[in-house]
């Protein structure tokens, strides 16, 4: 495999998603090519740097408002009303789960 092809595959060697056959070919090449070996070290360092900087970014600033999503999605008003009622009951400690497929998970978060 020529250097250019090897170097194009290095990001996927670094993120460990290259196929076994690609890994074999790349490692066979870098065993005898100092340039590509250095390149791999640089790609791995860059990958770690990007990953660590991105992991340090803040997560979601606010929870997704699922009720707003349901309403925006154009569900019948009755459904939205049911969900709103369910959330109110949960807030008051009256119920924990309504057992409805997509109302029940919502009640856990309110």
């Amino acid at each position: 495999m020529p250097c250019q092809e090897v170097q194009e595959l290095l990001p996927w060697i670094a993120n460990q998603t290259a196929s076994p056959s690609e890994r074999r070919q790349v490692f066979a090449h870098i065993a005898v090519c100092a340039t590509c070996r250095r390149e791999l070290v640089e790609v791995v360092a860059l990958a770690r740097r990007v990953e660590s900087a991105t992991e340090a970014l803040p997560g979601p600033a606010r929870a997704v408002d699922h009720l707003a999503l349901l309403e925006e999605a154009g569900l019948p008003p009755l459904v939205a009303e049911l969900v709103r009622g369910a959330r109110s009951l949960v807030r008051q400690g009256v119920v924990v789960s309504l057992g409805l497929p997509w109302v029940a998970p919502l009640t856990v978060r309110v």
Partner: peptide, 18 residues
């Protein structure tokens, strides 16, 4: 939906924020 958000919300948020 909550399960999807719990699993992928932070990952998508960081992707979008970056």
């Amino acid at each position: 939906m909550d399960a999807l958000y719990a699993r992928f919300g932070t990952r998508l948020s960081r992707f979008a924020l970056s």
